[in-house]
Design a protein around this nucleic acid. Sequence first.
DNA 1: ATGAAAGCGCTAACAT
DNA 2: ATGTTAGCGCTTTCAT
Lengths: 355, 355
Amino acid sequence: MKKTNLQSSSVTVADVARHANVSKSTAARVLGGYGVTSEKVRERVHASAKALKYRANELARSMTTGKSKTIGVVVGDIENSFFGIAVRSITDVLNANGFNVILANSDENFDVERDAVNVLVGKQVDGLIVAPANRYETAHLENLKTLNCAVVLFDREIPSMDVDTVISDDADAARNATEAFIAAGHRRLAFVTATIEGGREDNGKWRIPTSSVGRRIDGFLSACKEAGIAEENSLVVLNSDPDLGLGASISKLLDQPERPTAILASDSIVALEIFKQAQKRDIEMPDALSLIAFHNADWTEVTRPTVTVIDQPVSEMGRWSAEQLIKRIEGSAEPALHHVMKMKVINRQSVTSPK
Amino acid sequence: MKKTNLQSSSVTVADVARHANVSKSTAARVLGGYGVTSEKVRERVHASAKALKYRANELARSMTTGKSKTIGVVVGDIENSFFGIAVRSITDVLNANGFNVILANSDENFDVERDAVNVLVGKQVDGLIVAPANRYETAHLENLKTLNCAVVLFDREIPSMDVDTVISDDADAARNATEAFIAAGHRRLAFVTATIEGGREDNGKWRIPTSSVGRRIDGFLSACKEAGIAEENSLVVLNSDPDLGLGASISKLLDQPERPTAILASDSIVALEIFKQAQKRDIEMPDALSLIAFHNADWTEVTRPTVTVIDQPVSEMGRWSAEQLIKRIEGSAEPALHHVMKMKVINRQSVTSPK
DNA sequence: ATGAAAGCGCTAACAT
DNA sequence: ATGTTAGCGCTTTCAT
């Protein structure tokens, strides 16, 4: 009555070895698929393993090999379809290569991100893919170099860090989109993002923690400036009041007497909110309001008007980051790569000249 | 030159102990936050830990405690906003309770799901939340009972399994929606899903592996039958040709001479595809085609017409599953719970009587 | 309150 | 080709 066979506790290599009448190391060699073993022993061990319902303890394996075959992925918000697609492509590549993914949401909050990274490192992940929430905070990532942990930055660079990074050409894309607005005759423009304000820098420039958004704003403003648009007509709308949410900022924007005639939305969630609010106010699109959105979200071709978008190669970015991470884990020592992917505009119906 | 201090390899409890001039076990007690230690020693150890940049190895910790503080989550497709929201709420609850989440995509494929579950068990997860792709396959989940691994089924029950499960009232909701169509005068209806056909059962009924979809079909058909709708006018459209994709099935449906006047879409992705194809064919909605969709996706209030949806309490379901799992891990031995959440219809503009 | 020693399940080095 | 031994970094007895 002391030791029931059916009990839950796990069957180990030692148990299998005993049952198969071989040494622990021989059983381990067969079960772990390494070293050399004879056909005969292999069969015997496998049979015993099956009989005892042996399952390898990957934790123990990781302990001794120093490889956990686990990757940490830290994104801003998995609910955002941009990250949904990214995570999908990342896990696809990683799983295909025998890695598992621990997912963490930073909620675009740096403290959460740092904690997540630390926990993941504690779990001995072999590598990390992170979309850093703040391009001015690097300590938690710098630390990784010391440890045996590869990193790839996804969608957002950290200028001061020399690590593999994949981004898209945010500034160029934003500039092009803005120029398209201006070419169509717009003189009152706005860029809208859900990013929370990071204050201003000494030179008076916005301090935008989210690097991709920061670069988009740069592109937007430089195009406006070049075209001689006044500052008050090249608005940058941030999520100024996190309590009220972005909706409040957009309400304010649309309710002002001289509201912009063209808006560049930093992502599809922002674009959707603009769309909703414009409809509620009976603001005719595109005649009374032109719109271009970053990210070719699925719904953008089904609205009336359909939405002109800047198509980010999200899956490709995800794939690249995963593949690059694997290369590093396998020991690649080439200089850090900084991969910039081109975005392309998909012209649909939401842009016209202001009426 | 033999042992550089700056080298990557990790600082262990033993290192900290040596540096602080205490025994390994004392250092471990302080660092692990268990047992009793004196104030003085505690300070000294923490100081040493900081000086040496000690980081606990959670793998080793898990090895000895038998708790990995890690949960496996297996969903059909993280790109689907339904699962995106679910994963978000699940990870939120789990993280708040000190657990991490390993995410796996089954791609609605049973073999992938089984492999994923096995890998996760190998990684010694404390529990699993899974949206099983196939309600007729249970072996991989039955096994978990023997092991020290809690399970909660999410969104899909497995009738033969007595485990904690959270679903929504799919059959009722589908029946109600169908009855609404019929009450509006529709006599040619269709239910469309991306699920792949599982053949027919002996009694001639559809064999639908995805349990939630199966129950929705039951509800749809029973409402049709009750209203005396002929079989050829209560179509169930599956993704019959996985190579061509669901789009092909929908094309066929819409191109047939006597196409349905009302469609119930099994999820928002299906609904979006129907919307796109209807627009392409200039099928006026709702006059020429009424539509109700499961899942209150964000874009459904921005189309023209806006889409009447069956709102699933996705976040609540996610939260419930995570909370229930934690209870089990903490040792709750109450009988398995089978939690059914009510869905509610949000009436918008996509339903009218057939013209 | 602290220390010494054993052990989690596996792989790695070194025999034979 | 197989066996023996010694760890990985931590927690957990059991002493003191």
